[in-house]
Every structure is written in C-alpha cells, then in structure tokens.
Simulated scan of single mutants.
Amino acid sequence: MIDHTSIEEFPPAAWNESHRTVQNVYCDESRVTSDRSDEFMIVGAVMCPADRKRDVVGKIDRLRSFYSVQGEFGWKTVCPSKLPFFEALVNMFFTDPDLRFRCVVVSRTRTDFKDDEERFQKIYYQVFNKWLDVRDEHRVFLDHRVDRRDRVCTLRRCLINTWRFGDAVKFVEEVESRECDLVQLADLLMGAVGYAWNGRDDMEGASEAKRAVCRTVCVNLGIRSLGHYATGPGEWKFNIFHFLGRNNMR
C-alpha cells in the first residue's frame, strides 16, 4: 500500500527501495533556436521505464525494417514517402501503456527571460516539475548541446538531491540524438505540437505529410486539433503545459 501523505508534507516519502521504478527520460527542444518567426517554442520529453527500453527500441527497429526507413528520424524528416512509418510510430506510442510524453509550450512574446540560459533552465525545470514521481528513480538524457557546455551542469544542480526532487533524479547526461531513438520520438511528438500551435498546419502550402501526423495524434487523443490544446497537470499519457511564466507556474 502507498503511504498517502498530507498535501503539506512535501516531498512525499519514497517507496521502499525495492519498489522503486527506474524511469528513463529522453528530452529535446523544438523551435527554440530555429524558426524564430514562430510564436511558440516547445521543450519536452518521452518517459520510458528503464527495463522496457530495449523492447521499445526493438519495436521501432521492426517498424524501420517494415517500412524500409533508415537513419535518424524526427519531425524535420516527415515526408510523404515515410508517412506510414511516422503514423505507425505515433500509434505505437499511444498503444504502449508504459510510454509517456510531456511538453511545455512557451510563447516568445508573452514570456520574458533574462537570456537564453535562464530560458533553458526555467523551461526544462517546468518539464520535470510535478511530472517526475519522486517515489521513482529517473535517469535524464538530453540531446547533446554544442552552444553552452555548462548548461547541463547547472540543470544537474537543479534536479539532483534538491528539496523539490529529493533523490528521484539519479543523473542527467547528454546523448547524441542520432544514436537515440527515444530522443527522436520525443522530437517527433514535439514537432507535431509545435506545428499545430504555430498554425503551420493551416497555412497555404503546409506539408500534407505533417498534417497527417498531426491528425494521427489527434485521433489517438480524441480531439479535433492540436492547435492550442493543453492539458491539466494530472494528464498521464500526453501532457501539454502552456507556460505563461509566473502567472501559471505549476
């Protein structure tokens, strides 16, 4: 049985160590440094139990083989010839009960950050805040950055052995996205959210393949459009948080 603590008691007591689940969290960004004409930036992650990683990657490999798709995939590579592969990937995510997704949508004009460094740290913090279960262990993997070597070190200090997360985050490391299918999956899902939130799916000349991927996400969610679709903090499978700075910090 879970020991339900009072709402004032935070962080809650951890599970008995033998009951703790180890979760891998694969993170990426969309439209943050590119597409600056777009209103909304996206930062997010896919979560997968560590003991399921090999199985999930195996599923992706089988889809690659079936659809004859090789190399790195992500939102930028969505095209008509690969559309069945990408639709199958989205459906795989939604039908696998252990995979979860969360992203934070941030307006360029309605939020004010001192600089790119503050933006990076605060938005990533919101990705993890009230999403990571402090009763579990988490291993965080971020797409490798070449612009600021100290950014990940700062993020580690914000996540590891802190009052907010306790000992729930074990390490934060960079990986090469081209070598990590689950970072690429996060990029694909974030790309669909960003495409719709920025209204690109309604623009003249919009990619029909990208529109189709957005529709596949919508069908799985049971909604008409991803544009400005956001969820409550407790949404388990596909969580979208529209971050407005101090006005709605969770």
Rank of each mutant, 00 (worst) to 15 (best):
98 D>W: 12
70 Q>T: 05
93 F>C: 02
229 Y>F: 13
8 E>N: 15
151 R>K: 13
179 E>L: 08
54 R>A: 03
197 W>Y: 09
108 R>I: 01
68 S>W: 07
171 F>R: 15
216 T>S: 11
3 D>Y: 11
163 W>N: 03
120 F>P: 00
61 D>H: 15
186 A>M: 04
21 T>I: 06
73 F>G: 01
115 D>C: 04
55 D>H: 15
17 E>T: 14
209 A>T: 10
153 C>L: 04
41 M>Y: 08
170 K>C: 04
65 S>Y: 06
53 K>V: 10
176 E>T: 11
238 F>G: 00
161 N>I: 08
40 F>E: 01
113 F>R: 05
59 K>Q: 11
114 K>F: 02
35 D>F: 14
68 S>A: 06
26 Y>N: 08
131 W>N: 07
7 I>R: 15
80 P>E: 00
199 G>M: 04
250 R>W: 10
186 A>W: 03
176 E>N: 14
133 D>A: 06
30 S>H: 15
195 Y>S: 05
122 K>T: 10
232 G>V: 09
51 D>C: 05
51 D>Q: 06
165 F>P: 00
104 V>G: 00
54 R>I: 06
134 V>I: 05
139 R>M: 01
93 F>L: 04
135 R>L: 02
171 F>V: 06
57 V>D: 01
201 D>H: 15
250 R>S: 07
199 G>Y: 12
91 N>E: 09
222 G>D: 10
191 G>K: 02
230 A>W: 14
51 D>N: 10
7 I>T: 13
227 G>A: 05
150 D>E: 10
119 R>V: 02
19 H>F: 14
